[in-house]
Design a protein around this nucleic acid. Structure first.
Lengths: 165, 165
DNA sequence: ACCTGAACACCGTTCAAGT
DNA sequence: ACCTGAACACCGTTCAAGT
């Protein structure tokens, strides 16, 4: 199977969901793809740019789940769900969102839809909350009422966004 | 100077504010303290527990700036300020808050004051927003209106907390 | 009690050289 | 164009041994 940026990304995604970011090394990735570590660098600039490819792929997954006109609270819940599918999804997407916000923000939560300010608010709240939640899972600390708790805070923040375009 | 957990933490803090988390390695820390890397492990369990010591120290810094009865919005702004002093403060405190919330949450923003739900909301919003802000600084992307933007979202979230104990 | 020295099992990245 | 092999400059952590 020929090596491509896509095959690298999808193998990374699978390592991520099974083992997490701690095990996602360029060397481990290369081993999984039966290739020398240096081979990856012909397809991908460096590890950071791979993480950005990953976060774009997660955005696409959220967009497939909820269209641009979806209810913002429902979209935030879907984003959370997708982030949770991959062990350190929130940390990675936080990086991607920092560097290229429009490429990573789900349509239903983008600046076009909610305005720059509120879009940034709901995204940073979601990324922060899920990052904490994922760290806690790592340490086997109570998940418990994480979903309801997040929903409550997200809806407090979004309270001002009733009646959208 | 005798090596202690405190001297290790404060040297770590200084590396952090000058160079950031990428340069905060156990080996680098040991070099700065004129000691073998292995010496650190007598005083500190591992790197992660050092990061938790660091995040407790930042909590103390915020508490010194604003007492338990401070206005929550003002406290959130102070927390942001302190996090910004140290290059990857938000990422580190996010880890600390994940593992031992009460040891890391500033008094004025703790669960005792705001209730578990809202306390978690304002803290994850702050940590998420500042983590993004610090990543952007790393890449020399616009700081610009980050403070006002954060203040706006934090006050949206805290809107429900008027009239406190 | 506190620290050194050496070792183990890793990293990300570059680059000449091969095909 | 695409990949190998070897190298460079690092990591965190453990552990016998020294003082």
């Amino acid at each position: 199977m020929a090596l491509t940026a896509e095959s690298i990304t999808s193998t990374a995604l699978s390592i991520l969901s099974q083992y997490g970011l701690g095990d996602l090394s360029m060397r481990r990735l290369a081993r999984e793809l039966d290739v020398q570590p240096s081979a990856l660098y012909w397809h991908v600039k460096d590890k950071q740019s791979l993480l950005i490819l990953i976060s774009r792929s997660l955005k696409a997954e959220v967009d497939a789940l909820c269209p641009a006109t979806a209810d913002p609270l429902a979209a935030a819940m879907s984003l959370r769900e997708v982030l949770l599918k991959y062990r350190d999804g929130a940390e990675i997407v936080l990086l991607g969102y920092s560097i290229t916000p429009p490429d990573v923000a789900p349509q239903a939560l983008g600046a076009d839809r909610l305005g720059a300010e509120l879009s940034h608010g709901i995204l940073t709240l979601t990324l922060g909350a899920v990052a904490v939640e994922q760290n806690r899972r790592l340490f086997a600390i109570d998940p418990a009422d994480a979903a309801e708790n997040f929903a409550a805070n997200a809806s407090l923040l979004l309270r001002s966004s009733r009646r959208l375009p």
